[in-house]
Write a protein that binds this DNA or RNA. Structure first.
Lengths: 223, 223, 223, 223
DNA sequence: AATGAATGAGTCTTCATTCAT
DNA sequence: TATGAATGAAGACTCATTCAT
């Protein structure tokens, strides 16, 4: 279907028809609209009419691509996961320097690629609907959370091995260290939008890193 | 919408209208049932029928005490806040020893009085419905989160003053330090109930404290 | 529930409340309205709104008594069957005279109790929806058609035993003899309502009996 | 409604408008597919999608030949009538022997050409939709039923004239004699497909003829 | 002539809310 | 105070119909 560099390329029209282009782009447009509204209002409170009109199509069109509202929900989560995993790959790719610097760098990348984008709404969505869509929740847990936790655990282990970090319970430490990051994403899509108190993400993450790396303790290595 | 007084009741406790008195007599069973179901299924997916039958009353009875489903929701949050605030008072009451020990003790108490009870479901509920009930969210923010943050900030300040803690951005540090606690509560009422991976709360909180107090760093005061 | 002549009768209010009376009569009112409309327009073309308003209730009320449109359909057929079976019992009860006279009498009773009433619409309904509701069709077949066929077969057998009727294939003969009766009921609820040619049921049934008893043949017993 | 011409086309065959010509070119596959599905599921429960895919075309193609689902329905009945009338002509063509033998022969032909084919589904279809398509029903009544009845009446009259049959009410007798034949067709396309009790058509028709010709009576011409 | 993506009116179904008892 | 039958507005879903290609 996707047809890279064959002889038949010659007979392919250079300009795809509008119809065709639309057809292929549709599902992504629809899930994008759905993600935004699911995150904003929750699954139940989001009307298919709203999703459709936000995507610029009629309600019936949704059913050309998704069997039901639930199927759309699942597609939203599934589709939202791919970029996150891609981001994880990018993050893991190549880095130099200490493990502390690595963590710093990973966090910045996460913020750029996930936290600051609409993908940052997924955690809130999955958490809110976990009881109503257990499969989705455990899938998200497995595909995203566990994987990210694994990544962090490896970094921590290397830090310990290098004598850079203290020995610790890896599992728990990873969870605890992720919590402020997840909460940042969650808050940005919920309470921070209501009250007047909006958090400065950059400063928040910087504080998180400092605390994580040094803790509260004032005890210092004597020079 | 139809009943903004519900929230403002808090600030006008001196006048006891008929309505007021009725509202005080309001069976806690109703809000307890509602809290459980709202936390479990979310606001929209919870039917008044279910709340009523869980509370052992008929659906009509709910309307003797609450003007609408929204009013019930607000009451649930409001009522759930009181014990939290009481807990905060208890916690603040009397303590001895270092600030680190204080934090430890506060955390244990929070877990006993809030985190391990059904009240621990409130954060998830408020977060999930924040966009649909902004007043509730910002009220919760003000009444609970901000107050708890203030408490923590005071502890941190004292630790800094005593030379026990490093200087830091108090606001951000408090938020960051709360995040793992909130996430614990949130997870216990969402994703932890789906997958097979349930967290051990005691160990989780212990790890949080250790990380918070010492950080990841292995640098130690040389003897 | 139905409570004939007990001591407790004394404590029962003589006048049932309007509400109560309504509650008990409701399902029958609803199925009556549904039967009329299903027969008239078919299952799919009948809107629940129409059924509700014909029964003088709101659409939602239907769902207090029936889980779905399909459940209502099944209830219509089930409920329609009871009187038919009752009629069959009445018909079987007591008769004197020849088997030919018995058949005549049975036919007249069927017409009075079934054919001329709205129950006469059931065969058309069941036939029309047989493919979409196979269970209902085979249930109707078993509960009504087979039973009626059995009744007729017994009459035929007795006629044969008495030397009154010719030997014959009982099964097939019963089916063939029922056909004109069923067709009368079917026609009265379909084509006869459209064109200008309405059949005179009495004459039709009389002709059926004559043909059945004597056939077309002009051969006569010599005096 | 939008296309009453569909039926009247029959009476104005001389003028060939563009539309007319297009309609005549109308592929029989479409109406054949439609007939099968209308008979199987009823008019309302049949989706144009299903008809199209059964005919191996796209849904849009149906609209090249028929203005609406209703127009398609009418065409199905109209088109289904032609072979029946042709069959009637064949049947009437040439026969020898007694009128009883003629009836026998006519019945066999009807079974071969109509009853055993998919055309046998038309009576059920017309009956089921008679109330929703009165014009179609009365047209079918006039074009098929009445004509067949006329045919039978002539045979009966000749039998009476020849002293072969008893005098009788011709109209009613014809209707009664047709009923078992129609019921056979109807049953084969409805209830017989559900339960386990399928009728043997040949035996059924044979029984019908015997009963019609001799009746139930055992009275015999003494030799 | 043929396609099939898109539409939106129509219908079933749910459920918060009311009110007679 | 308590009930639960009744309501009707709202929303998910279907499918006949249209039309750009």
């Amino acid at each position: 279907m996707s047809n890279p560099a064959t002889i038949e390329v010659i007979s392919e029209p250079l300009v795809e028809s509008t119809r065709q282009r639309r057809k292929e782009a549709r599902p992504a447009e629809l899930t994008a609209a759905a993600l935004a509204l699911f995150v904003e209002k929750g699954f139940a409170a989001t009307r298919l009419d709203d999703i459709a009109s936000r995507a610029g199509v009629s309600k019936g069109t949704l059913y050309l691509y998704f069997d039901s509202k639930e199927a759309l929900f699942k597609a939203v989560v599934l589709e939202g996961i791919v970029p996150v995993l891609d981001a994880a790959d990018v993050i893991m790719a190549g880095f130099k320097g200490s493990n502390a610097e690595l963590m710093q760098q990973l966090l910045v990348m996460w913020w750029r690629l996930v936290g600051s984008t609409s993908l940052g709404g997924l955690p809130k969505l999955v958490i809110s609907e976990a009881r109503n869509f257990p499969e989705v929740a455990s899938f998200y847990q497995d595909a995203v959370i566990s994987r990210a936790r694994g990544l962090l655990k490896r970094v921590l282990q290397r830090g310990i091995d290098a004598g850079e970090f203290r020995p610790m319970n890896l599992e728990m430490s990873a969870d605890v260290l992720f919590a402020p990051i997840l909460m940042l994403a969650i808050r940005r899509h919920s309470v921070d939008l209501c009250g007047s108190t909006s958090t400065d993400p950059e400063l928040y993450l910087k504080t998180h890193m400092e605390l994580a790396l040094h803790g509260l303790s004032n005890n210092r290595l004597s020079p």
